[in-house]
Amino acid sequence: MARIVCAGHVNWDVTLSVDRLPAADGEATIADQAQSCGGSACNVATGVAALGDDPAILGSVGDDEHGHLAERSLDDSGVDCGPLVISEGDTAVKYLVVDPAGEVAVLGNEGANEAFAADDLDSETLGAADHLHLTSQDPDTAAALADRAHDQEISVSFDPGRRIDARDFAAPLARADLVFVNEREAATAIEEYFGPADDLTKTVALKHGAGGAEVLTPCGRYASHDGFPVEAVDTTGAGDAFAAGFLSVWLDGGDDPDYDRCLAVGNACGALAAAERGAKAELSWDRIEGLLAN
């Protein structure tokens, strides 16, 4: 069991299942709706908790109904909310509009999800961790957290998410030992932040959605996995579920992780998430091993 601190956004998600993603001046019909705690830090923390690891979460929510619901949901999922900051602002609310093919459009307000700072994570909680996982957040906060982790010889991973081309994540990307990116994010980041593909400065897990994933490492190791053929109904949080599964295996592997299994488990988690409505995937080792066996 690894102690993992997940840092980043904690939102309240409202998922709207629609018959189509409307174009400008268009209209869609809402077929179903649901609400849950969301945000990448929340999704990864609940994912690794479901896989038997011991997560804590650093993020911020408002002192409002959505914030209290989010904290309760995290606590019920086995996530340590001790580092969670309760801000005077409103909790960030994201409206996730999902079409029948599982494609997603996101509407949201910033709310209080960046009201936390690096020093809101106390030294005792950080020192007890095996790993720090950073998700999309203020770049300076992410870099400061990574520096603090490395000062205590704690490994760091970073998933910059869809804002990689809108924010300067050079500092936290440079400090991460492991980076998660999808194809679009990689097109922005691989050469600029990581160096040439044949001379990487860190381990990169490259996600291809339904096409699986691959890993490239600084020492030249390479692994790939084709993924699993599932019918996608909502891709929200699938990348976070992949990260949760990958990290759980990666951290269990010590100095010589089995990247083939990291990818297989990560892809299984992503597939399970994509086959369900909402960002919070119902992960379990029984379900993962069932996919792997088939």
Rank of each mutant, 00 (worst) to 15 (best):
residue 222 Y to C: 02
residue 86 I to P: 14
residue 107 L to R: 07
residue 10 V to L: 12
residue 58 L to E: 11
residue 217 T to M: 10
residue 251 L to A: 08
residue 5 V to C: 01
residue 149 A to S: 08
residue 72 R to D: 15
residue 240 D to M: 00
residue 98 V to Y: 08
residue 210 A to Q: 01
residue 205 A to M: 04
residue 43 N to L: 07
residue 275 A to I: 01
residue 106 V to H: 09
residue 173 L to A: 09
residue 59 G to M: 04
residue 258 D to A: 00
residue 189 A to M: 14
residue 102 G to H: 02
residue 289 E to F: 03
residue 183 E to Q: 15
residue 264 A to N: 08
residue 102 G to P: 04
residue 145 L to M: 07
residue 291 L to G: 01
residue 20 R to F: 03
residue 57 I to Q: 13
residue 273 A to N: 09
residue 42 C to Q: 00
residue 231 E to R: 05
residue 200 L to G: 01
residue 270 G to C: 10
residue 176 A to H: 05
residue 272 L to S: 14
residue 58 L to Q: 07
residue 25 D to N: 15
residue 186 A to T: 06
residue 238 A to T: 05
residue 249 V to M: 00
residue 165 D to M: 02
residue 207 K to R: 12
residue 170 A to R: 12
residue 185 E to W: 13
residue 156 V to S: 13
residue 234 D to R: 05
residue 72 R to N: 10
residue 169 F to H: 09
residue 142 A to V: 05
residue 148 R to T: 09
residue 247 L to Q: 15
residue 40 S to N: 12
residue 99 D to P: 13
residue 143 A to K: 09
residue 280 K to W: 02
residue 167 R to Q: 10
residue 64 D to F: 03
residue 102 G to T: 02
residue 161 G to F: 11
residue 143 A to C: 12
residue 92 A to I: 10
residue 200 L to M: 11
residue 156 V to Q: 07
residue 161 G to D: 10
residue 275 A to M: 00
residue 110 E to C: 10
residue 147 D to N: 08
residue 176 A to S: 15
residue 243 A to M: 01
residue 13 D to N: 15
residue 61 V to A: 05
residue 63 D to P: 13
residue 176 A to K: 04
residue 114 E to T: 14
residue 34 A to V: 09
residue 72 R to T: 11
residue 292 L to S: 02
residue 1 M to L: 07
residue 105 A to W: 02
residue 112 A to T: 08
residue 273 A to H: 03
residue 136 S to Q: 13
residue 154 I to G: 13
residue 121 L to M: 00
residue 243 A to S: 15
